[in-house]
């Protein structure tokens, strides 16, 4: 996912604008804690709370604040010092997971399965990914595997038109696994470079729906034992600590290989991502920052961390 220079400033500006409000809140929070004061126990606690308010979760917040305390305890510190130090710690956690999604051109097709709970933004993400791969010159096929939600296939077809990718769809209620199988066959026939398979949103605690997803994987493996080559879990940035259970379950049942975080243009900053990166070490391939086709951006650990802490680049 390499962007051209102007687009890059565009998305950064956009991300920053989007993040501005809560970032302001968080950094105000930090600013209130430290205009310039001694880093004492009370200050550490307040710092921890500011991190919790960004969805980092109590445990991660405590660890980060504690780490800072070990280095600077009882010293006089400024807001910027605290922010910079925390941003560096967060970036250190996130850097290893900031890896773009690069389809292997030798595969033909490189199969990407997209999963997630309802409303996380799977279909929209697929539309944007299709566009991204198309711009890169790849031939892309989309499989409308969400045969449950009303008009999901229509939604994907519109994305197909926008991105110039073919869409394989069936009537509502059709077997998603069979559809995926056919789509893979067609992708091979057509010599497509990338096959993106959409799936119906499902809550990770519904065992029968999760089994259905596992079946889809089993079925496409009959054609290509190495497929899916990537399995993306799409997470909504507004999500709280339940993201942990989601990643855990999806990873276990369908071997999720990477994450996409959507809706980062709101006030939610997806702070839980820091905790997820720390715990699961799954790559974060891209972030969604809006509803238009260009609003999928590579995940940049450094700027994400600095945005999270209210620092400019």
């Amino acid at each position: 996912m390499s962007d051209t220079a102007p687009a890059r400033t565009g998305w950064l500006a956009r991300l920053k604008a989007g993040l501005a409000k809560t970032t302001a809140k968080l950094s105000d929070g930090i600013a209130q804690v430290f205009v310039r004061r001694r880093l004492d126990a009370r200050a550490i606690e307040e710092l921890e709370e500011a991190l919790i308010a960004a969805d980092l979760g109590p445990a991660t917040a405590q660890r980060l604040a504690g780490g800072l305390a070990r280095l600077k305890f009882d010293r006089d510190v400024t807001v910027d010092e605290v922010r910079t130090a925390l941003a560096e710690d967060v970036a250190a956690i996130l850097t290893p997971v900031a890896r773009p999604l690069v389809p292997d051109p030798a595969r033909k097709p490189h199969v990407i399965l997209v999963v997630g709970v309802n409303g996380s933004g799977k279909t929209t993400t697929i539309g944007k990914l299709a566009h991204h791969f198309r711009v890169g010159g790849a031939k892309v096929l989309l499989a409308a595997g969400d045969t449950f939600r009303a008009a999901a296939a229509e939604q994907l077809k519109i994305w197909g038109e926008r991105s110039g990718a073919h869409v394989v769809a069936r009537e509502p209620g059709a077997d998603a696994a069979a559809l995926a199988f056919d789509a893979l066959e067609q992708a091979r026939r057509d010599g497509a470079d990338v096959l993106l398979i959409d799936t119906a949103g499902r809550l990770h605690n519904k065992s029968d729906l999760m089994a259905e997803l596992a079946k889809l994987v089993r079925v496409i493996r009959k054609l290509d034992a190495t497929a899916p080559h990537d399995c993306l879990l799409v997470l909504d940035a507004t999500i709280g600590q339940n993201a942990h259970q989601q990643v855990e379950t999806f990873r276990e049942l369908v071997q999720v290989t990477g994450l996409v975080v959507t809706k980062l243009d709101g006030t939610a900053k997806g702070g839980v991502l820091v905790a997820l990166a720390d715990r699961f070490k799954l790559p974060v391939h891209a972030i969604g920052v809006g509803e238009t086709i260009d609003d999928l951006k590579p995940f940049d650990a450094h700027s994400f961390a600095r945005s999270l802490m209210g620092l400019d680049r």
Binding site: T22, T238, A268
Partner: peptide, 8 residues
């Protein structure tokens, strides 16, 4: 499933 952002 909304996190801390629910208040905003």
């Amino acid at each position: 499933m909304t996190g801390q952002d629910a208040v905003n």
